[in-house]
């Protein structure tokens, strides 16, 4: 199973070190409190340079998804089909995510999701999102 890694020089950055430690953190403004993604040295909401890292709640809404069936690289041939998602976090930021390799789920735009961080190796982990367990849908728990 091939999972594409960011090159090692990126994995020292806080977004990735927090994930490797098991939690999704978001680049967040210490002044207005709003989060932004991808990480940036300046808050796009209030233009403060006083930014830091805060843990995400992990709650999100599904904005879109696609099941990729055509591998665009020969090394991805064993990986297809796989599901890529576009999720809107409760903190108001958008992220690209997906279903964990090999996992299936019935997806619907607008559904509630929850984050699960899966470590692929000691330095590299990814935030995946799965349908949230909801009242009336005990089988998704």
């Amino acid at each position: 199973m091939t999972v594409i890694r960011p090159s090692d020089d990126y994995l020292d950055q806080p977004f990735w070190t927090h994930l490797a430690a098991g939690t999704l953190h978001l680049s967040s403004c210490e002044d207005c409190g709003k989060a932004h993604h991808p990480p940036s040295p300046i808050c796009p909401h209030c233009r403060s340079f006083n930014t830091g890292w805060k843990p995400a709640s992990g709650r999100a809404t599904l904005k879109s998804f696609t099941e990729v069936r055509h591998p665009v690289h020969t090394l991805l041939e064993p990986a297809v089909p796989y599901v890529v998602t576009l999720v809107e976090l409760e903190e108001g930021v958008r992220m690209v995510s997906g279903l964990p390799p090999g996992q299936e789920a019935e997806l619907r735009v607008g559904m509630a999701l929850e984050c699960t961080v899966i470590r692929h190796d000691p330095r590299f982990a990814l935030p995946y999102f799965l349908p949230a367990p909801a009242a009336g849908h005990p089988d998704t728990a």
């Binding site: 960011p6 696609t66 665009v72 890529v84 995510s97």
Partner: peptide, 18 residues
């Protein structure tokens, strides 16, 4: 680095998301 690890690699896949 924020989208490739999930396999989102080429414009045609972005268009599928739209």
């Amino acid at each position: 680095i924020y989208s490739a690890p999930f396999g989102l690699l080429v414009p045609g896949q972005h268009h599928a998301l739209y």
